[in-house]
Design a protein around this nucleic acid. Sequence first.
DNA 1: CTGTTAGCGCGTTCAC
DNA 2: GTGAACGCGCTAACAG
Lengths: 359, 359
Amino acid sequence: MKKRVTLRDVAAAAGVHVSTVSRALDPKTRHLITPEVVSHILKLSEQLAYRPNAAAYSLKTNRSRTIGIIVPDITNPVFPPIIRGAEDALAQQNYVAILGNTDGSPQREEEIIDIMRARGVEGLLLASVKARDTVVERLAAEGMPIVTVNRRVDDPGTASVVHDERDGTSRILNHLVGLGHRQIACIAGPQDLSTGRDRYLAFEEGRAALGLERDANLVTVADSFNESAGERCAEELLARDIAFTAIVCANDLIAIGAISALRRHGLACPENVSVTGYNDMPLADRLLPPLTTIRVAQYKAGHAAAELLLEALSSQPGERVARHLVLPVEMIERGSTQAVTVKAKGRARRDTPARLSPA
Amino acid sequence: MKKRVTLRDVAAAAGVHVSTVSRALDPKTRHLITPEVVSHILKLSEQLAYRPNAAAYSLKTNRSRTIGIIVPDITNPVFPPIIRGAEDALAQQNYVAILGNTDGSPQREEEIIDIMRARGVEGLLLASVKARDTVVERLAAEGMPIVTVNRRVDDPGTASVVHDERDGTSRILNHLVGLGHRQIACIAGPQDLSTGRDRYLAFEEGRAALGLERDANLVTVADSFNESAGERCAEELLARDIAFTAIVCANDLIAIGAISALRRHGLACPENVSVTGYNDMPLADRLLPPLTTIRVAQYKAGHAAAELLLEALSSQPGERVARHLVLPVEMIERGSTQAVTVKAKGRARRDTPARLSPA
DNA sequence: CTGTTAGCGCGTTCAC
DNA sequence: GTGAACGCGCTAACAG
């Protein structure tokens, strides 16, 4: 491996002292040096392909130009756009990111944060937080700059970029009611995550506002935002033997699982049961059936979160105010929802005795 | 932010010299120190939550314990499993990765590599290489350890982990012929990428071996591995006004695009035309229709590639031999392929005059 | 076995 | 305007 050219090499070539080169190369201190010398040094360092040594810079200044991004699992299609957005924003300021996957485990999260701190990350972008997150609380107390993205923590002291869950859920409900649905089931997401909780709260709120009766039997809570949890919850709803014509799912993967489970029980989506997702993840439009869902701007969220973090890094610790961004969402109507038909209405299950349906 | 505890702090607390602490903490040199002293130091450093400063280590040893992973676009569902596999392998040796997206642009690739070198990455994991890649050639010549994953470069001097493209393509062809297809079109991938080229070569080889006639009209080449390229190529095939009952696509996204284009022209998959993908990306089983495709072990490939790279890093520059791994693939039969029906056979297009179909 | 010493490459405070 | 000197936190060579 060719050895790297250092400040010293450039200085030797230019016939000046290292510190002169250092100053000439830094736009902030460049004015201290004679213009001709500056241009000479600039040309030379270009020629020699001088690249400052990040480790030395970091050791000296205690600034690593690195931040940590922590997600539950990069393999979940929700996260890549967030990461991409964040990295694009970071790159503009010569920052890079190192990535960690927690698989939802708080211990793993702690380990990863430990590793990242050893690496001297200047801040953290967290897509993995629980609503009540002791790891984050402790870190924030120590003054580590943190921005959560997609999810947030209850403590308003931690900056966040999230989506308008209430509006999204309300649009879904209005859409379904507009199609004639009155018996609407809900597969809520994990209630220890802000997204799962906020969407569920918005569901109950919207349901009440639309004059639909509350029925605890229509609600089930998934322990995870994935397909198998969706399947399990749909099975549970079906086992309860109650009537519903639509299911509002906490995210797209849950919806996919639910549709599979329905199909196994001989129920077609949307003919027998309408199903909605949330996130509009990649390929949601190509599924069988294409998902009616809420489009959230994940790339934008990642981008904005990184910018918020960079902003916090460049401000003094004292003057930091945790900022919170709520991005607007959009409803995307596709094939997984349709108007209630007389046939499907009332009773969602096929081979069980009919029962009185309210209204 | 709480200031970090350094070796010096631990040394002061233990009443010994820094270098003693350094040695006690390193398993390799620990045997030089009296066991009681070691355990005392270990306990103390634990207590003080000592974390070695990565920048200082890196500056001193010239080893950053960081590698660069470069992909075309993390948003493409093929890459997250590769990245995840690589990161899991790296983590076992206390390495971390920084990520870069090239969007397929060689200039961007060069910029990213520049940034990564400034960061002192010890090696590179490349999922972005062209078959002929001057950037990689130059880097390899300079001695930078490189492993390509998923794709490879023509130069056998660069280590790689790829999948058995020939076997995969041959399975697809056998499957289709077994279903009675004789007029099989092909949407090949970009021919400057090893995957696109190898799959296409295997297609021609397999076609000949199966005794199918060569027809240049049945082949089209996509300029990119995505849905819109798939749509364009399918349109092109249709415009040529030739008969085919199946299309072999270079990857899943192309297949998805092709199916969309067919549908726009009133052709259903698989009823009128069978379509195959490649990669078995996440959700390929949930699409409309579910894709018959080749499953490649992306996580495993990423994992293996990272291990290969770590191995190269720990060996002496002299004794390095570029290793090449070819992982086995598996065919997954789903709904996008079916036996040729009398009705569909011969002529794939509906509202155009029929034409003689060979055999 | 342990302490001493000498940098790794850079930014920064002093002198000049 | 420029050079000299120092040290960030750590490892490694050498002493003892």
